[in-house]
Simulated scan of single mutants.
Amino acid sequence: MKFSSTYEIPSIEDREVDATVKPDLRVGFILMNQFTLVPVAGLVDSLRFAADRSFRSQQIFCKWDWMTCHDQPVTASCGMPVSPTKPLSVIGEYDYVVLAGGLLSETRNPPVWLLDLLRELHQAGTQIIALCSGSFVLGQAGLLDGRRCAVHFTIREEFIQRFPLAEVLTDKSYVDDDGIFTCPGGTAIDLASNLISRHCGTVRAQKGLEYLLVEDEEIQRQTPADKPRVTELHVYKNDMVERAISYMRSHMDAPDSLAAVAQSIGTNERQLHRAFISCTNESPARYWRRLRLDYARQLLMNTNKHVTQIAYATGFSDASHFILWFRKQFGETPNSFRKRRHEIEKLINTGH
């Protein structure tokens, strides 16, 4: 990688933390030729500051790789040459794959194999982020049909002409519609902050904002003891589903029934189930449980609450029920999740 030493992945010898540590957030960058540097730099620097407790640029809590379309060096639109650090092999390896576009001459007519790869990624459940004109590639792959997307105002007319089935927004810094993110450019730091907050906790999101001198009053007002925000970035074009999700968010600590959810929005359970399956590919019960578990993980990261307290705060009937579902969702118990994070931070602090 030829950005600078700041962006280099530390060698194995330089890593002082056990390489078997499971990261909270894994991101793969696919850099297209003539990509725009600023949003890529803003996103990866935010990850870098969230990746360890100090400022050593160690990839512990967050990990990322650099790839290119043909495993060959590419040149950013500013003229900076960049070499990949890993071959383009991304299925199942990342939570997010970032497609970094730039000059339209490189993204108007992407190769067919790249379109197939993006469809396969989406089908496999990997969330995709298109930076700058990367949205043209997603549009060509058909992944923006019927979805909202954020594009730069200078390319709005051409984008609408090419992809009339997409709902174009030019007043958003980014949009996430069912796991397809579009970011028109800028620094992408606000997008990074939301992703880090969800996966690594608000403290790590705030760390990057402070170091990058970015003001985010909502995040900076919070302390580790404050109630973490429930980050759910998806946007659904169904008023019933949106209102149901709003009810779920505001009743995280209440073991309400789905009948209560349906009644609150003036429908019945059968219609609610159909709407959720159509929009989210999940039943309302599973969706609500996932919201609760994501919230519980944030409480584990950002507070010292006992597991039993967290179980009740997230609407579970008891700690055993909570532990069972947490393990099914995240592959470990709440105590092991918290212990692992504490051990890593202690290891970083002592420099061993």
Rank of each mutant, 00 (worst) to 15 (best):
R148K: 13
Q123V: 09
A166W: 03
L143F: 03
G139S: 11
R147C: 09
I155V: 15
T154M: 09
F159K: 03
G134S: 10
A150K: 03
L138N: 02
L143G: 03
R147V: 03
V137K: 03
F136K: 00
A141V: 10
H122V: 07
A124S: 15
G125F: 11
Q127S: 14
S133E: 05
G146P: 08
V137L: 09
I160E: 15
H152D: 15
V151E: 03
C132Q: 06
H122K: 15
R148Q: 13
Q123F: 12
I155A: 04
C132V: 06
L165V: 00
L143V: 06
R162C: 07
R147N: 12
P164R: 11
T154F: 08
R148H: 15
S133I: 00
G146E: 08
D145G: 07
I160W: 00
L121P: 09
E120P: 02
R147H: 14
H152Y: 13
V137S: 04
G146K: 04
L138T: 01
A166S: 15
L138K: 01
A166R: 01
G134H: 02
S133R: 00
L144N: 03
I160D: 07
V151L: 09
A124N: 14
G146A: 08
G139L: 06
G142W: 02
V137A: 06
H152E: 09
L144H: 07
Q140I: 01
Q127W: 09
I129S: 05
G139D: 04
P164S: 15
A141N: 07
L131M: 13
V137H: 03
G125H: 11
A150T: 03
Q123S: 14
Q140N: 14
I129N: 04
L165F: 08
V137P: 00
